[in-house]
Amino acid sequence: MLTFVQQLINGLTIGSFYALIALGYSLVYGVMKLINFAHGDLFTLGCYIGYTLLVWVSAFLTSLFGIWGCLAVGMIVSAIGVGGAGILMERVAYRPIYPAGRLPAVVSALGVSIFLENFIMVVWGPRYLAYRSSFIPTAYWQIGSFRITILQVVILVLSFLLMGLLYYIIEKTTFGAAIRASSFDRDTAALMGIDINKIIFFIFSVGPALGGATGVMVGMYYRQISFTMGWVYGLRAFTATIIGGIGNIPGAMIGGIILGILEMLGAGYISAAWKDVFVFIVLILVLIFRPTGLIGEKKAEKV
């Protein structure tokens, strides 16, 4: 029971990371029908931007806003930077190629991913970097015999706020309706007067921005960052997207949280070395019984 609750808390934290990254995949996939393979590396870029800010100008920032303010500034700047990178990526690598079809866009996405990963390596160096621990709050609450750190609480609250906000925008506002309409049928939506370019701008800035903010949170939570971590997180988040049903916003959130909890329970009860195998086997089982994810795509296959 003890392990279970502890792993549940840890799983929920990691799950919210996956959910936030998964939202980026799902937003882009929904409208563009493109798996943005570079999304994991955009997330890594977020980690590194956050690292640079927190290490280089943290003294100045802390004197202005205090420790929490400094972390907040780190996350906001990282989100803006990565959002900008996302838009740039769309302009340079996707927009000119998109008319050629889906598959060239996939290769282009893989190319961007390799480019970004190596760009980060060239700029920040190939070694592991560590977030400075003096800037990370380490306090925790001991409830009974398990513990929950303040950082975990902040991460959970923040992620759920961000997810709630995005859910609200997508499901309740007119602009969200336009996004849903374009993901249902882009051409018809354009004919109805929806400005597709605005929507593309939104999905390619907000998706990566969420990833960038998550990057800073992951950096604070695990401390250690490396330029190759994008593959791992990207793959997990993509798995989460699929478990929930690709192109489906609530599905991505639920998928992410389920994946995080499964991974931690797998690590706690089965074996840390085999946890990824456990996750993928669950994924395959989910897909065997529900071929379009737990929540599923909302539209029927057109013939």
């Binding site: 190629i97 893989l110 990963e117 190596n118 390596m121």
Partner: peptide, 21 residues
């Protein structure tokens, strides 16, 4: 040297731009 894979990624994007098929 270390810029090799950087160019490789960019070349993949460029390839798909010039010869998508």
């Amino acid at each position: 040297a270390k810029y090799r894979m950087l160019f490789f990624g960019a070349a993949m994007v460029a390839m798909m731009y010039f010869r998508p098929a």
